[in-house]
């Protein structure tokens, strides 16, 4: 086999292999995703209950991913969950932003939703979001529903 043709084929093969790796990295695993690239600031928030929230879960505002959950800790003083998020520095949020744990779809994964407030002062690196809303836990919801029904039934008597 001619040396030049051989080199060409092998070059094409290697290029194809690396293109496949790039495709897997970019399109399939999406390492270039918004909110994980560029400069980030760290924000913290305390929740009563984080439900099934995991590290690396997305942080979204108005449905757009603006960051990722970096760490989850249990705070033994307050008996609350402390969630650390890395949020893109390109999107400053006001001080009175509300962080809530939401679910994408009925059985989808859980994420942190940020609802911007109206304060003129912005959150800085290391700040804590004071207003939080915990995850809705299905068992608790059902329990609450049944309790309400029972209470209704009781009052109707």
């Amino acid at each position: 086999m001619n040396r030049a043709i051989l080199d060409l084929w092998v070059g094409a093969f290697v290029a194809l292999g690396f293109a496949a790796l790039m495709f897997l990295a970019m399109q399939v695993a999406n390492v270039s995703e918004e909110g994980t690239r560029g400069e980030t600031i760290t924000l913290r928030a305390r929740f009563e209950d984080i439900g099934g929230l995991k590290v690396k879960a997305p942080v979204k505002s108005a449905g757009v991913v603006v960051g990722r959950v970096a760490a989850i800790r249990f705070d033994p003083q307050t008996y609350q969950a402390e969630v650390e998020m890395k949020v893109s520095a390109a999107y400053p949020f006001p001080k009175d932003t509300i962080a809530s744990i939401l679910t994408s779809g009925l059985l989808g994964e859980q994420y942190v939703g940020l609802a911007a407030g109206a304060d003129s002062e912005m959150l800085k690196d290391g700040d804590r979001i004071e207003m939080t809303q915990s995850a809705l836990v299905l068992e608790k919801l059902i329990g609450q529903f049944l309790f309400n029904k029972a209470a209704e039934g009781g009052s109707n008597k």
């Binding site: 290697v14 194809l16 690396f18 496949a20």
Partner: peptide, 14 residues
């Protein structure tokens, strides 16, 4: 060859 072939396999599969 092997890692490149596996990457191509996965990509084509996706």
């Amino acid at each position: 060859s092997m890692p490149l072939l596996a990457a191509i396999f996965s990509t084509v599969g996706v």
